[in-house]
Structures are given as C-alpha cells and as structure tokens.
C-alpha cells in the first residue's frame, strides 16, 4: 500500500499544473524510494520526468512497486477542492482501483476526503542516457518564463545560442525579430537572478516556443531553471524541487532551417 503526506496541497497542485499541458494520463510509479512519473507527449516531441523522493514526504510508506494510472484532468478536478495550505495525504491499497485523497485544514477542523478512480495505463519505460552536455546554463526561472512569453509574440520558434559571453534567445517572424541576451553574471547581489554558464563548446539550437511555454508552468516550483544543451540532441530543462526531487523536461530540437 501507499501512504504519503505533504504539508501543503499547493505543491501537488503546482506539479500538476507543470505537466498537465503535456500529458493527459500517466502512471505515477510508487515504490519505497518515492514517486516517479515519466511520460511523453502524444506527438513524441517532449518528455516529462518527475521525481518526488520519499524523504520529501512525512510520513511516506510504500512497501511494493505500485503503478497508479491517473487521468490528470480528473486529478485536477479533485485537487481544485483542496486549499493551498491544506495538509494533503494520498493513499492507495495494493489491489485497489482508487486513490484516496484527504485534505486537512491546518487547524484540523475541516477534513475532506475524495476518491479518484484509477486506470490501467500501458506505458513503455524509456532509458534516459546520462549525457554530458556541451552547455549548461543556470538562470532565473522567472526570467526564462518572461523570455519565452515575450518572444512568443514574435514567432513560434526560438533560437538559443550559447557562447562564453552569454546565452542569446532570439525569434524571427512576420512582424520582425527580437532577441534577449543574458550575460554570464558572477557578481550580482541576488543569487536567484544570476546566470551561470558551463561551456564545453558553443551550441545553437532551435525549439518550439509552445513547448517551452508548457515547461514554464513549472516556474512556481523553483526560482532557478537549468538548461542543458548539445547540438542536435534534445534539450533538458530542469526545475529542482527543494529537498524533494525534480521536474525535468526533454524537448527535441527543430531541424534544418
């Protein structure tokens, strides 16, 4: 059986926001080390990999591998019934076909209980190679969100060029073109806003902005985002969750121009 408790329902709500644009239904794979989700979008262009480690919950119990097949639209409906600050407990029995969700107000004077019907989802597991990337850029997640939003006014594609000097995002469309360059900043006062670049060799890649805008739904989960890139391979966009795990997105680049 599974029993996992989070001090704030807000976290699961935010996680759902971060993946529900990409994936309609997926397995939440639970085992004694935590809860993992790996799902590709229907067009096989993007993949989301989510990890919530057991020690991020208090308590967490799961004594065997338990894949919970969940329709995210249905889960979203039930999570709308939770207050952001509610204590959230999820439970599932080994042979059950429902996920129990309990929302408890902080002062424990209101307890609501819901059951979500589970489904059998036959999904293939993908091995993601441990890759050495040519360029790894760590930057403010809010800044990345703003750049994606701003450049989506110009085009549905974004070109990312990374050099020693900085990272340049550019877009070119019918109305004209635009770009935003962030220089590597070593001495800013606010660490959250710094841009750091680890570069083996310069990269230039083109991506669909639509997908980046789906990824930036994860912005509330972390003040930082890490973009890992090599030419001609999928970009890894990672949001680390404090003491809990991560949300990673992989996106295939656009080819030829």
């Amino acid at each position: 059986m599974l029993e996992a408790r989070l001090p704030q329902a807000k976290l699961l709500k935010s996680l759902l926001e971060a993946i529900k644009e990409l994936v309609v239904e997926c397995n939440f794979d639970c085992n004694d080390s935590g809860i993992a989700v790996q799902a590709m979008d229907s067009s096989h262009v993007a993949l989301v990999a989510l990890l919530l480690r057991a020690d991020g919950f208090d308590p967490y119990r799961c004594d065997r591998n338990l894949p919970l097949g969940i329709n995210l639209t249905s889960l979203n409906k039930i999570l709308k019934c939770a207050g952001n600050e509610d204590i959230l407990t999820i439970k599932a029995s080994d042979d059950g076909d429902v996920l129990n969700l309990v929302f408890e107000s902080k002062d424990s004077d209101r307890i609501s209980e819901y059951e979500l019907k589970l489904m059998d989802i036959d999904s293939e597991h993908l091995g993601i190679p441990d890759t050495q990337y040519d360029a790894v850029v760590s930057m403010s997640s809010g800044e990345f969100q703003r750049i994606c939003r701003d450049l989506s006014q110009i085009s549905d594609s974004i070109v990312i060029d990374v050099t020693k000097e900085g990272i340049k995002f550019s877009a070119s469309g019918e109305v004209g073109n635009g770009s935003v360059t962030l220089k590597q900043s070593g001495s800013v006062d606010r660490e959250d806003e710094a841009t750091t670049i680890e570069l083996q060799q310069a990269v230039s890649l083109t991506f669909s902005l639509k997908y980046f805008q789906y990824f930036t739904k994860a912005t509330p989960l972390s003040s930082r985002v890490v973009l890992s890139m090599s030419n001609d391979v999928p970009i890894l966009v990672e949001y680390k969750l404090d003491n809990l795990g991560y949300v990673r997105y992989y996106l295939a680049p656009k080819i030829g121009d």
Binding site: S43, H44, L47, P129, S157, P234, A252, I255
Partner: peptide, 14 residues
C-alpha cells in the same frame, strides 16, 4: 523553415 524533430531514437525503450 525548420521541422520539428522527435524524441524517438534518443531514448531507449526499457
């Protein structure tokens, strides 16, 4: 114009 690549082939099916 650039065409959208796919993830197939980058990852191995386990």
């Amino acid at each position: 114009t650039a065409t959208q690549g796919r993830l197939d082939g980058f990852f191995t099916v386990l």
